[in-house]
């Protein structure tokens, strides 16, 4: 694991939709690099053939029946919204379509 670069941190910040000024970029790069350096002990391990664990317990097939439950009152839903128009959540213009 090579050292973390400022460019990589800047890219990650863009992906996470967080803006960083130059000083923050510098500071976060140092701090994240430290944490990743600590994580270098993982890289040294030979874990080929070890199955990953995404869940602590191996549960499977937990399902619910296809039965309608009451939805929330719309007024309550929209009351929390920063901006509403025509009973919908309003946002500034969207640049670019969904992938």
């Amino acid at each position: 694991m090579a050292g973390l670069s400022r460019e990589e941190v800047a890219k990650v910040a863009r992906l996470a939709r967080i803006a960083l000024d130059d000083a923050e970029l510098e500071r976060f790069t140092d701090q994240l690099a430290q944490v990743l350096e600590h994580a270098a002990d993982l890289e040294a391990l030979d874990l080929a053939g070890v199955a990953p664990t995404a869940h602590p317990h191996g549960l499977a097939n937990v399902l619910r029946d296809d039965e309608v439950r009451e939805s929330l009152p719309r007024a309550e839903v929209l009351a929390q919204a920063p901006d509403v128009a025509e009973e919908r959540f309003a946002v500034p213009r969207i640049i670019g379509e969904a992938p």
Binding site: E67, V68, R69, E70, R74, L78
Partner: peptide, 15 residues
């Protein structure tokens, strides 16, 4: 458990 139905009034089938 919100209804899956087309054409309802906006934001009435949410939880």
């Amino acid at each position: 458990g919100c209804a899956n139905a087309f054409g309802a009034e906006p934001n009435t089938q949410t939880c």
